[in-house]
Design a protein around this nucleic acid. Structure first.
Lengths: 221, 221
DNA sequence: TCGCCTTGGGTGACAATGTCACTGAAGGGG
DNA sequence: CCCCTTCAGTGACATTGTCACCCAAGGCGA
């Protein structure tokens, strides 16, 4: 598998001189994974930088008793710094990345990463920026979990998952894993939403009947 | 105020050539703050890298309704990357850093930071490592808040705050802010600990009577 | 088509935690 | 010594998490 010029897709490589980019294309490895496969995890720590060329990765954390929470998502054109984080910090953590769609990624070996970080300002800024955004994503998660109400958070998530569509395919369990809560809690809240005619449910799908009501709820944080 | 050779104190600068360090000492600014002063915050975003030479900074996040949670602490010899994070990511966040003791810090202007990051591997690795550790700190916070029990978390915190001493000076409100919960909750749990003779309380202080019992509780996560 | 069987979802009881509206106690400064 | 601020205790209630179930939907093989 070859991608003619993947460096176009990344803020951190697009601005590099032609010569550098050609060299990069030589040393980088292209990796493809199927939807559902694990990209990284506690027992599977890569020692290279991971650029997501196509697809989406869901990064989540699982507790000892099996509950799960989604930390953030990595979209095409972004870098997954958590892999690098672990590589550098040599500490245990129990987050894992799952391919949410089929994905294509560019894997840069550590030596190439180091050289690039040393020589190219644009690249270095890209990596620092990626770290910063993730830090801020996590601040948001902490805020939500520590201080947010689940009905508000669920409304937000439903709207976000729907995008501009009217319907979502998701089980209660999946939604619970998004928010780091239990299925029963989601069932109760959705029941409530249903009674208030904001949504309609059928097995595995949720129709958003009244988005503006959901938005009101979501913004009443 | 001058510090003869602060570069000795930082992993990221200690390994640098004498010449570079001397130049650093020229361009860096020394800042001192009193205990309780704000180091950075939503309305006070520095555009430089912050090295903590002496003292300790508490980084916490405050919710809209006034509850607070401690995210992590920065100790002498560490860098406070959240300041940098914000500088780079240009996104809003509501974390703030408070000087928990009188502090002395070395502030490196952005141009000097950039040059150093480009030219010196040791420095760059130090900064990447600092980011990584903070990311992992936050993963731990998310895990605790989303999945942990407060009695367990409180026991941990008491032991940690005590260090090798037997007594802690802290109000229930302060402990609540550490864990991101409400004062009443802390009061109830401490009451319980007291009944079980693990601690004794007086106004503003807590004596740890039975540390091993607390450790048992803390490890029963 | 019928009858599993797996998966998704509903429910009630209870436990843990958060919120509210108070109360009184402790201790410092006029 | 009194007042006043800060700290801590309390009961009632709301929200969220846990447990032990139940039933329903729908796929699939007999």
């Amino acid at each position: 598998m070859k991608i003619p010029d993947w460096t176009e897709r990344f803020e951190g490589t697009r601005a590099l001189p032609r010569k550098v980019r050609d060299r990069l294309i030589q040393v980088a490895r292209i990796v493809q994974l199927k939807k559902g496969e694990q990209v990284f995890g506690p027992t599977n720590i890569p020692d290279s930088l991971f650029f997501l060329y196509d697809g989406r990765i869901r990064v989540s954390q699982t507790s000892d008793n099996g509950r799960e929470i989604v930390l953030y998502r990595v979209d095409a054109g972004e870098s997954c710094v958590l892999t690098t984080a672990c590589m550098l910090a040599e500490e245990a953590y129990n987050a894992e990345g799952i391919a949410e769609t089929d994905i294509t990624a560019v894997v840069l070996p550590k030596p190439a990463f180091d050289r690039l970080a040393a020589e190219e300002d644009a690249f270095r800024n890209f990596v620092f920026g990626a770290y910063s955004r993730r830090l801020i994503d996590l601040l948001r998660v902490v805020d939500d979990v520590a201080f947010g109400r689940i009905d508000v958070r669920l409304a937000e998530r439903l709207l976000h998952l729907a995008g501009d569509r009217k319907e979502i395919s998701a089980t209660h369990q999946q939604l619970a894993s998004e928010l780091g809560t239990a299925r029963e809690v989601i069932s109760r809240v959705l029941q409530d939403f249903q009674k208030r005619e904001m949504i309609a449910q059928s097995r595995g799908r949720i129709a958003l009947l009244n988005k503006s009501a959901l938005m009101n709820l979501a913004n009443s944080a």
